[in-house]
Write a protein that binds this DNA or RNA. Structure first.
Lengths: 405, 405
DNA sequence: TTCGGCACTGAAAACGGTTTCAAGAGCAAC
DNA sequence: GTTGCTCTTGAAACCGTTTTCAGTGCCGAA
């Protein structure tokens, strides 16, 4: 394992930052004049310790005294009696260094547990080898799938992933994107296509390639790797309709802040309209992504004037909550209530009854997005958008409506 | 916009043999001599585009030509006709800048969608305002809880979180830690306490504060925020024993690579021994963290010579799989088989029957760890270790063993 | 001997910021 | 008119690397 390895996996989470400074004191701790690097500022201790003026004076000449000192390439160079350029070469292009020199330097590096400063490296090389990923939540495990795939793909190509969690907030997402740009991600994978024009502008002005996932972009055709949410939701609805359901409820995410939820809701409404069934607002529930939200939505649904015979839950999390509510109310699924979910989480086939759901290509989507993004970063043409297929996985939670109703 | 050329960078003649042939790579575009910045190396193209020597010559006089150009603080300073120091102040200490100047600079920043280079910032300020977090897997949602709490706490204090996923591999974890150090995290939150001495040395040599979670450190008492896995597992076992179970199976993670699994297994073995029940290897299954692994383990358990009447699953993921297997085999839970899980995932109360489980303080642990770590980073004394309480949540999946057997 | 070429190494500019220090401007008090 | 202060501002050192360019030493060929 030589020096600058880019191969580990690392999906960082970005939070918020705040400007603030800290006074750190430091002492170089080496003297070898033959390797003197022109460090110019004559009065380091005074300048660095400025604010702490009242403290007892520390001898500037002592070595290895400052507890915050960090080993740099210079100390390594000094100890190995070579130049910093050579140390850098040992780390990055070992074949360019004479075997003997290389071994000496490597030994010194080992001995000192030296770790390169990636900030300096990134700054000097103008490569961060990092891509940014923004997902809306970490608790819905469907994003764990795509995140894992993205990370894997990135790692395979020598990139790290910086992860940001927006919690479905546009404000938060904008802040996150900014922080990712500050960290000089070389590309970005975003969730959903609906965001302010200004963000896209910033991205383009900063020349950061980005790919949308989970939802294709329509108006300005940004590159995306997604699936057709409307079509997918329509598949779920068609399934219920073909089973004979007419009064169908909907539980989905907040369509105002989630364009996937919106697309699915639109599909629901279209199908209901095509069915000739009038819109009934009391059959539509937009909730957060929590089990309990699906449960309470179903609870209210069951108290409606005309109970639906089936409910389409536009995500499995809410479907699981809805299912539990039916069970607790003694309502048998699918005999008295059909439920179709969306996402086909791994857990969904471990429920009872198993959940009928729309299987989405989360892993594949993530993998492809990462691959295309990295290709783009490395000079290929901007990738074409791609729509991945989805499928309905029919299981025990959906069936024909009860006869006599 | 005055001086459109302020932001221009120009791509100089490619392949020019360098020595100051008059081809200045960067067109300053502003004239105020008082703001001259001393950029020294005259020939950027050679360094940036070196390998592409054969390409057609591009006019040196054009502006805005280099597609890789990025707006820096210098361009902003030039356009606003101030020094870079002032721009930096506007960004970091706005109150130190005259209102009028500040507004001008801010306008220029806005107009150019300027985003600071965090690498340069971190390098210059010696603060990355980032903490590292390593978890074993992203797919077990129990880590989503702690991760979220950590991120929240970090964000509240102005820090970002860099997340690494080790997939239960020590090698991977070591590589991850190295990368986190390269990225100059100011502190680290690790999962579990069992890792090679060398890693701890590297951490200490690099003076990076770290806190262990999920498992306290014993031999060298590193700071930790954890709970007592052995005690917790013992609670689960006691619960089953008090219900009257004697033949109890165990499904847990790989104790070789997971010290939490080991501690829980040890507790299981201790309780079984205390019970006077001889060790039966065929009642112990170490598996990966997948639903299906719990399922297959239970499958094999049910084929054993003497079926257990209860199974302690040292994590809910496997418990869910085990539960599903029982259901599919027509074995009623808890009448014919009791199951106790561990973690108390949110999903566990949405199953049928609901899962009896050990509730662990994942969020609290994460939050506390992050708070302590950041306190430490900001100069407080190394925090004391803390053991958080756990509790048994009794639900439908556990009950007394069937009478006649 | 002279020279070209090659393998290796070091000096120094550059990356894009932060921060210290000093100086200029404006103003009040003496 | 000085003096002393505060408020702003700019120059320049510095952060820890990468990378270019220019040696230097050695060797074989002319």
């Amino acid at each position: 394992m030589q020096g600058a390895s880019h191969l580990a996996r690392c999906a960082p989470v970005i939070g918020s930052s705040c400007p603030c400074s800290g006074a750190t004191s430091r002492d170089k701790g080496y003297v070898d004049a033959s390797v003197s690097q022109s460090r110019k500022h004559p009065d380091r201790s005074a300048s660095r310790l400025g604010p702490l003026a009242g403290k007892p004076t520390v001898s500037t000449t002592d070595k290895n005294l400052d507890p915050a000192a960090r080993v740099t390439i210079r100390e390594i160079a000094a100890e190995a009696k070579v130049s910093i350029a050579t140390v850098s070469r040992v780390l990055n292009h070992p074949e360019q260094v004479a075997t003997k020199t290389r071994e000496i330097v490597q030994a010194v590096i080992e001995r000192n547990h030296f770790v390169m400063d990636g900030m300096a490296t990134a700054l000097a090389s103008r490569r961060s080898r990092t891509i940014g990923l923004i997902i809306p939540t970490i608790t819905n495990s469907i994003y764990a799938s795509s995140t894992q795939a993205i990370q894997q793909a990135a790692q395979d190509q020598g990139y790290s992933v910086l992860l940001g969690v927006s919690e479905f907030s546009a404000r938060e997402e904008a802040a996150l994107i900014r922080r990712l740009l500050e960290r000089r991600v070389e590309g970005l994978i975003l969730t959903g296509a609906d965001r302010s024009q200004r963000i896209y502008e910033t991205l383009e002005r900063n020349r950061v390639p980005f790919i949308l996932t989970w939802q294709q972009a329509e108006q300005p055709p940004h590159p995306s790797v997604a699936f057709d949410n409307r079509l997918a939701a329509r598949m779920a609805m068609r399934h219920l309709i073909e089973l004979g359901h007419r009064r169908i409820g909907l539980i989905c995410g907040r369509s105002a802040t989630n364009d996937r939820a919106l697309a699915r809701r639109v599909a629901y409404e279209e199908e209901m309209r095509a069915l000739g069934v009038p819109q009934r607002e009391w059959l539509i529930f937009e909730r957060d992504f929590e089990f309990v939200e699906g449960r309470t939505a179903m609870h209210r649904m069951l108290e409606a004037r005309f109970r639906p015979t089936a409910v389409f839950c536009a995500n499995d999390i809410q479907a699981i909550g809805a299912l539990a509510e039916c069970r607790d109310r003694g309502l048998s699924v699918p005999e008295e209530m059909s439920i179709v979910g969306f996402d086909d989480l791994p857990i969904s086939q471990y429920l009872s009854p198993q959940l009928t759901s729309i299987r989405v290509p989360a892993s594949q989507m993530g993998f492809l997005a990462a691959e295309k993004l990295i290709g783009w970063i490395e000079g290929k043409a901007p990738p074409a958008s791609e729509l991945l297929p989805v499928s309905l996985v029919q299981r025990g939670s959906s069936g024909p409506p009860a006869k006599g109703r």
